[in-house]
Design a protein around this nucleic acid. Sequence first.
DNA 1: CTGTTAGCGCCTTCAC
DNA 2: GTGAAGGCGCTAACAG
Lengths: 343, 343
Amino acid sequence: MVVTRSDVAREAGVSPAVVSYVLNNGPRPASVQARARVLEAVQKLGYRPNAIASALRAGSTQTIGFLTPNRANPFFGALSEAVEQRLNDEGYLMLAATTHGYQPDEERLLHTFVDRRVDGLIIAAGTSLVGSALRDLDAPVLVLDHAPESAGYSSVQTEDHLDAAAAVDHLQNHGHDLIGCVVGPPRIRSEPLCLAGWRTQQQRAGAFAGDELVAFADQSEAGGASAARLLLSDHGRPAILHGRRPTALFVGSDIQAVGVLWACHELGLRVPEDVAVVSLGGTRAAAYAIPTLSTVRQDVEYLAGAACAQLLRLVHEPGAPQTHLRIRGNLVVGQTCGCAAAG
Amino acid sequence: MVVTRSDVAREAGVSPAVVSYVLNNGPRPASVQARARVLEAVQKLGYRPNAIASALRAGSTQTIGFLTPNRANPFFGALSEAVEQRLNDEGYLMLAATTHGYQPDEERLLHTFVDRRVDGLIIAAGTSLVGSALRDLDAPVLVLDHAPESAGYSSVQTEDHLDAAAAVDHLQNHGHDLIGCVVGPPRIRSEPLCLAGWRTQQQRAGAFAGDELVAFADQSEAGGASAARLLLSDHGRPAILHGRRPTALFVGSDIQAVGVLWACHELGLRVPEDVAVVSLGGTRAAAYAIPTLSTVRQDVEYLAGAACAQLLRLVHEPGAPQTHLRIRGNLVVGQTCGCAAAG
DNA sequence: CTGTTAGCGCCTTCAC
DNA sequence: GTGAAGGCGCTAACAG
């Protein structure tokens, strides 16, 4: 049924080693006749080398493990697709796993990857545990997330703190001071940074930055929608706001912002006239929201490219130094911040 | 550095075979003392079995290959995530690859999977070539797509033809007869079925179903937007329509429909008053569009569950008969079809 | 230039 | 109840 290298050797009338020499172009030369006979036999029998056996022997699976919290979120979806593309181009396959930001799953999947001898690991937005669990993993690891420089792995990270501050700054420039903040669950490592960015920038401008303006929400449209309802509805508003409704919202991800827009629509609030919105992400979901989202764009293709390049370098030169790359987002003005109305 | 079974055996003072007996609970019994000593040594050395070596020996990798045209499309994104989840629950890992509906890539990735000895393959929405290439692949294959019953593999399929007709029927019930059709590129196998469903239903109602009402578009927001512009703009309308603009659009996927809504907004057309829209899919993108999309929902969780169950059955019992499951969508009424306005 | 051979790490049958 | 040994399919060092 399944044809092995010995079958090819027998068919071609040579030894198994010669088959390898021909197929791998080395490490030893083969005569022209032998080469031709081998190739013919390969063709005739439809031989394909067993990658598992090669992996065992060569100690390399040509596979990279990729861990995400969530691929339904378009940011991580696009990131995962971009990473996969890059890896394919370099001859690697991607072994995917989703953790849902759940720590035990994360650790389990990490070990599964290592057991399968992936040549390297990319970890996007892990929980805090990952940091310690990664230390002695004896496979190259690249963390696509905020990570301490001191850790035992390379990283490519977004500047969530600065990007969030930039978003809030833009809203402040439009005259807003009561700016709410919608971010994901704090167990995801980047979320506290978004929150801190909002807080820093509010304080810098002398604006209120208390917890009454913050809503934690799932990384989903539904999460964004309920956060918006919480912050914008007229009932049960905290006393400290003196009955005022936030006039703008900073939202930690595009997918949540889509939910925020939907909730505003439902509440009869106009965007950006009644509530201005700026999000963090810049995925295609932002470009096709109605109205188009103003967002601080974090370039997924670039992140993926840098991550794969760094990781594959570590894979190929085990002694290579660890690197830490930080990438800032850039503001993409849409219709939700109020620029269009002003201009 | 990396600890093998022999290391554990030496540490525990037993032979390598006993280590296997203990770790696999068989096939032979081990004494209580031996068992304890082995487990202790495993713990102490941090031994983890090499899954590649096991796979070579056992002939099973506990891995399933999953081929999609596109994971940026939320339908396929959700499908991929659901499949991954199911497989993980059954102890399998998912090896992912994206084909972009491009035939050579499809074939190449298919072979890469087989070379790596995946235990089975799930192929979502392949091009037409896949059918023939799959025939002699000697791994269980499940096609998550429309597929001929005669083919040499099992399938779980959506009823795109019927679902599209149901969507068009609903628009007709709202009094529309000039209903445009936006579908993906015909090289993706399901797209011609969407088109045929639209055409059948239009003809059944005695309505016009010529190519002038059809726009092929990429499976993306941008594709849907340009298709909508083509069908709805007032310039260059085909003579056969007598200057009339379609009053409704059937759209083959949610992601395209999001683009359609965006284009309508841009053109100053109100939805559903000026243009009613019904799409095929029912992803979360539809639920949080503004206005909320009316769509024929194809249950991704159910599709994924059925697909994994069927495939794993084939994996476990190689002789099991091939099955072909067809799953109809159900209409989810949102705001874009006009029901809300009418009610 | 080519054939033989020793493992890669594991599982499992066979002999003790 | 346990150990020795063969082999999964391949690569690469070592003989010829």
